Simulated scan of single mutants.
Amino acid sequence: MTAARPFIVAIDGPAGAGKSTASRLLAARLGFAMVDTGAIYRTVALAAMRGGIALDDDARLGDLLPRLDIRFGPPAAPGAGPRVFLGAEDVSIEIRTPPVSLGASQVSARPVVRAGLLDLQRRLATAAGQRGAVLEGRDIGTVVFPDADAKFFLVATAEERARRRHAELQRKGDRSTFEEVLADQRRRDRNDTEREIAPLRPAGDAVVVDTSGTPLETVVETLAREVEHRLGRGRREAR
């Protein structure tokens, strides 16, 4: 473990693999900060779409990034994830809509966006006073924190991930069909795995965890045991 900064846990994987919920519960169990990097890219996509900026217009995206004030706030309810703010506006719900989800996949493929947000992600994770931080996204263990103290890559079948997403959208009143959600899921997978910059892939030293048909509590327990083992090892080595 690197003594100069908090203990960093990187959780990567495709959309719908359970990263957000597992990361949130793991962070709460460990007393770590939670940094949802996917929410950051979603917020950039939302701001660009609102501003009429094409999601492949690198020049205008580059001009947009320094003007964005993206912050995390306390959860709206116990057990919920941190709220996401764009300036003073809570955009936590709007950034989870299907159009913004696809937009996030597009802007995350732009080198100018990835480079522009790298420092923000690292600063949020290493803020003073934090014992540790859990970051979830697509390239945390390969690009953002290649020296993370624990790396995980969560996977699940495309159908299982689409079922989870479809159920989530139904609870929010969205009328998308399962077939539409599955098609969106596969488009996002192609965008994420085939992009030239930071394609979705597990880090060489990541622990791969298949969440298909696995209770959430079991997934979190698996992650927590590995982190606690490494924390304990780091304390012993520091003596």
Score class of each variant (00 low, 15 high):
residue 29 R to M: 14
residue 44 V to T: 13
residue 104 A to S: 10
residue 15 A to L: 10
residue 187 R to Y: 03
residue 216 L to G: 11
residue 182 L to I: 07
residue 37 T to V: 12
residue 85 F to A: 03
residue 144 V to Q: 02
residue 187 R to S: 08
residue 228 E to N: 10
residue 56 D to A: 10
residue 155 V to E: 11
residue 115 A to W: 04
residue 238 A to G: 07
residue 80 A to T: 04
residue 167 A to L: 13
residue 78 P to I: 09
residue 3 A to L: 15
residue 189 D to Y: 06
residue 152 F to E: 03
residue 108 S to E: 07
residue 192 D to S: 04
residue 45 A to F: 05
residue 135 L to F: 03
residue 110 R to K: 12
residue 18 G to E: 04
residue 144 V to W: 02
residue 98 P to W: 04
residue 212 S to M: 11
residue 7 F to K: 06
residue 162 A to D: 05
residue 204 G to K: 10
residue 232 G to I: 09
residue 234 G to P: 07
residue 116 G to K: 10
residue 170 Q to G: 13
residue 131 R to S: 10
residue 130 Q to N: 09
residue 43 T to S: 14
residue 213 G to N: 06
residue 36 D to R: 00
residue 183 A to G: 02
residue 47 A to K: 01
residue 154 L to G: 01
residue 71 R to N: 08
residue 16 G to N: 04
residue 30 L to V: 03
residue 230 R to V: 11
residue 146 P to Y: 09
residue 35 V to M: 01
residue 206 A to F: 10
residue 64 L to H: 04
residue 105 S to L: 11
residue 226 E to F: 10
residue 113 V to G: 00
residue 69 D to W: 01
residue 13 G to N: 12
residue 83 R to I: 12
residue 119 D to H: 00
residue 161 R to F: 08
residue 125 A to V: 01
residue 25 L to F: 07
residue 39 A to L: 03
residue 41 Y to H: 12
residue 239 R to C: 12
residue 200 L to Y: 01
residue 33 A to N: 06
residue 226 E to S: 05
residue 53 I to R: 08
residue 198 A to D: 11
residue 216 L to I: 14
residue 78 P to D: 07
residue 130 Q to D: 06
residue 160 E to W: 07
residue 126 T to C: 07
residue 238 A to Q: 12
residue 194 E to L: 10
residue 56 D to M: 08
residue 129 G to V: 13
residue 141 G to F: 02
residue 167 A to H: 15
residue 9 V to Q: 02
residue 217 E to A: 13
residue 157 T to D: 12
residue 214 T to N: 05
residue 234 G to D: 15
residue 157 T to P: 02
residue 17 A to K: 04
residue 220 V to L: 13
residue 67 R to N: 13
residue 119 D to E: 15
residue 17 A to N: 07
residue 110 R to E: 09
residue 21 T to E: 12
residue 192 D to K: 04
residue 62 G to K: 00
residue 35 V to S: 01
residue 118 L to G: 04
residue 142 T to F: 10
residue 13 G to Q: 02
residue 168 E to S: 11
residue 83 R to N: 09
residue 212 S to V: 05
residue 50 R to K: 14
residue 149 D to E: 10
residue 191 N to Y: 09
residue 228 E to C: 11
residue 86 L to A: 02
residue 143 V to W: 09
residue 82 P to L: 09
residue 45 A to S: 14
residue 174 D to L: 15
residue 239 R to V: 13
residue 125 A to Y: 00
residue 67 R to L: 14
residue 98 P to F: 01
residue 107 V to K: 02
residue 173 G to A: 13
residue 30 L to A: 03
residue 48 A to S: 11
residue 34 M to Q: 13
residue 20 S to G: 15
residue 4 A to I: 08
residue 223 L to A: 05
residue 80 A to V: 02
residue 92 S to Q: 12
residue 239 R to A: 15
residue 19 K to R: 01
residue 143 V to F: 15
